[in-house]
């Protein structure tokens, strides 16, 4: 699914963008949690019965207690302890946050997980067990349960009913990778192309950042080299760059152009002349 941004305004008042977790990730986390809790319970009791250390009434007590605990309380406790993540959510790398940008409160965690009983467990157990009532009532109930399960798919921020009550969102854990600064690391040792202001006047931010994408990968095959060469030709034609560019200098040409174009655009931007793309002159 396509990512949907959630703009959060932290108390520092600098808006930051997080990606709303996809329906698949949500479903996966939930399935994993169920698998882990119920599977763990099953294994524990299998071991206990096999080891034969507890008598039946103790076993029954433990069983009733655990069956209760691995439903709503497990989710509340784990999200409290791990800051909005259950084990399943940790594995698929998503997490619960407060939609208002403040910190997640215990109230929100309790509220969103109490609703799990009707939103997840009831429909899941009924639909999976196949114990439908016959007739219109059964059909209506089934339809209704499917609808409840699908609520997160139908709203823009993929909130469950519990999320709406608690005011929470589930987002992807952001991963930060800092790539090297092209303008700093790749200063040319060779020819050194110089561009005139009117040549830098052509492009805008969009083209600059597209060029940045191209420069992130040095060409390795002949085909890629050919593509870089095409880019160079196009740029030369557009900005009316008359000098010849030798084949081995093409990469340096692009790097130099990127650097000077960026400097030019950034300084225009500081003077209040922001150029989003190459149509900045026609004003569309």
């Amino acid at each position: 699914m396509i990512g949907r941004p959630a703009n959060i305004l932290p108390p520092e008042a600098v808006p930051i963008r997080l990606e709303i977790a996809s329906g698949g990730a949500r479903f996966g986390a939930q399935a994993l949690d169920i698998l882990i809790t119920f599977g763990g319970l099953f294994l524990l009791f299998w071991a206990l019965i096999w080891a034969n250390v507890l008598d039946w009434s103790m076993l029954a007590t433990l069983f009733f207690l655990l069956v209760f605990l691995i439903r709503v309380p497990y989710y509340i406790l784990s999200e409290l302890v791990w800051n909005g993540r259950t084990i399943g959510k940790r594995i698929v790398r998503i997490k619960v946050i407060s939609a208002d940008g403040q910190r997640l409160t215990p109230h929100q965690i309790v509220a969103r997980n109490l609703m799990k009983e009707v939103e997840v467990f009831m429909p899941a157990t009924t639909l999976l067990s196949g114990s439908f009532q016959s007739g219109w009532v059964g059909l209506a109930l089934t339809l209704w349960m499917i609808l409840v399960l699908c609520v997160p798919l139908f709203n823009k921020r993929r909130q469950r009913l519990g999320d709406m009550i608690a005011g929470t969102l589930v987002v992807d854990q952001p991963t930060a990778v800092l790539l090297p600064d092209l303008a700093a690391t790749q200063s040319t040792a060779g020819v050194g192309f110089v561009f005139q202001p009117e040549q830098l006047d052509v492009y805008g931010r969009f083209e600059l950042q597209t060029l940045e994408q191209i420069l992130r990968n040095r060409p390795k095959t002949e085909e890629q080299r050919q593509r870089v060469s095409d880019v160079v030709h196009t740029i030369r034609r557009k900005i009316k760059f008359e000098e010849d560019v030798a084949a081995r200098d093409e990469w340096d040409f692009l790097t130099d152009f990127y650097r000077q174009q960026r400097e030019f655009l950034e300084s225009r931007h500081l003077f209040g002349d922001t150029r989003e793309d190459k149509f900045h002159k026609t004003g569309s």
Binding site: V14, Q173, P174, D181, L182, Q209, R216
Partner: peptide, 18 residues
């Protein structure tokens, strides 16, 4: 206008915020 830098800072701040 360095896209890589903006993306990085955005993600870093989001992570730190959480």
């Amino acid at each position: 206008m360095d896209k890589a830098l903006l993306d990085y800072l955005e993600a870093l701040c989001a992570r730190a915020y959480l």
